[in-house]
Design a protein around this nucleic acid. Structure first.
Lengths: 239, 239
DNA sequence: ACGAAAATTGGAACGTGTTCCAAACTCTTG
DNA sequence: CAAGAGTTTGGAACACGTTCCAATTTTCGT
């Protein structure tokens, strides 16, 4: 269930070790971890926002209230674990086979957004819980390793577009990745807060991507992006 | 202190009525409201995140704990009131006198960001509190009226750029305003969560704006935006 | 197999946002 | 001025995230 196989990303050499070298103690701990994550996931799926309390999660997982704190540190960390457990995102990147690199970027966006589209209530709850950053250790919206991998994947897509002569190399892939990420997160934030309907999520993010990309595109790239911009704009105007 | 004079925006005809027609009862209520907002502001200024509890705010304001709930409804609403009380943002829009409409957009961004730059801790606390959207009535990051005014002001700046032949009118001012807002909010979110240093805030948002705008710019507009993109990129690379 | 180390456990406790309540107060209206 | 409506008040209460504690169980090294 949690067999996250990231083939196309360099392995850090730590992930699968934890499953093997740890003795019985480590193994039991891992099982408790997964039971807690599963309990939290099920609770969100069943009751949405309500009843997602640490006491409920602990009871459902069959552990004491203090155990999730020993294992994860905070409720936010548990929710983050649920989030990352459900999204084997990077994995499927390699399967994107659009004609050009720019279209592949939008395919990747569609892929990432498909999770939210298919299960809006679930992921909205997750996002809202993740935004609760009252503790001083607010790690952001993803684990550092996860974030690194995701960013690298996006950067590679952008660099492909540069190699294909669609994007101006004067604008760094790092710069563009950041800009795309911020545009996306801004839209996600609006969605999580209820200001953006689920149906508008894909067109909105795609429109943001298209505009940002076109801002650093070569004429060839701009020609690809222009119709997409207008199409997204129309879709949003109709909905 | 709260004399918010928005000259350049059509008056809704409700704002100042509240100050006059209400009798002594309304007046006392308004004074309690402002005492609560002021207490919350001072507490954030003095102690930052800590001790920003409703009980503290109430004590500081010299009112009962239940009064803020009667007057605002939730802690979030109180914080939102603090936020909007401090930012007489739209007011100064008319003073922007850059050469072309595009540069005026970036001036407006500088203006909006200047609040956060000058008092990062204060506004970071505010943002984090505003992101706490556990209640079902999460109104977003601004009051509806405020939001409407702000969006109208931005749209006008964009339309000016279109009138000056710098932006392609095929992309709606509404579309662009949305894209700019999302890009900005994404960066603000990262900043609020501590993932983006305060020094990077202006270059990052400006870079996002420049890319989005250039994505819908005419050749004339693109020529203005290109050096700005590179300049922001350099600034970020150095910092 | 035995002792030591590590973890979970149950329970209490703290401070939090929020709601409810009857009693007291204050302003408006007749 | 007096009845009345409209609010504030103090206090208790609830569920929550989180932390602390001593007691207990489970695993590891020898």
């Amino acid at each position: 269930m949690t067999d996250l196989i990231d083939i196309d990303v360099e392995n850090d050499g730590e992930a699968e070790d934890a499953f093997l070298d740890g003795g019985r103690r480590e193994q039991a701990k891992a099982e408790r971890r997964s039971r807690i994550v599963r309990a939290a996931r099920d609770l969100i799926r069943e009751t949405g926002d309500t009843d997602l309390s640490m006491r409920m999660i602990a009871k459902r997982a069959g552990v004491s209230l203090t155990t999730p704190y020993n294992l994860f540190g905070s409720k936010r960390a548990v929710v983050l674990a649920v989030f990352e457990d459900e999204r084997d995102f990077v994995v499927r990147f390699s399967r994107l086979k659009a004609a050009n690199a720019i279209d592949r970027i939008f395919d990747a966006n569609d892929l990432g957004m498909s999770y939210f589209i298919e299960d809006p209530d679930f992921y909205r709850t997750l996002w809202k819980a993740l935004l609760n950053t009252q503790g001083a250790d607010s790690t952001g919206l993803a684990t550092p390793e996860r974030l690194k991998r995701s960013r690298a994947a996006w950067r590679r897509l952008i660099e492909d577009a540069q190699d294909e002569g669609l994007m101006d190399p004067a604008v760094t892939s790092d710069t563009l990745e950041r800009a795309l990420s911020f545009a996306s997160n801004g839209a996600m934030l609006a969605w999580a807060m209820g200001a953006l309907p689920t149906a508008a999520l894909v067109p909105t993010t795609a429109l943001g991507y298209a505009l940002v990309l076109r801002g650093a595109a070569t004429p060839a790239g701009a020609a690809i992006l222009q119709p997409r911009i207008l199409r997204c704009q129309e879709t949003l105007a109709r909905g």
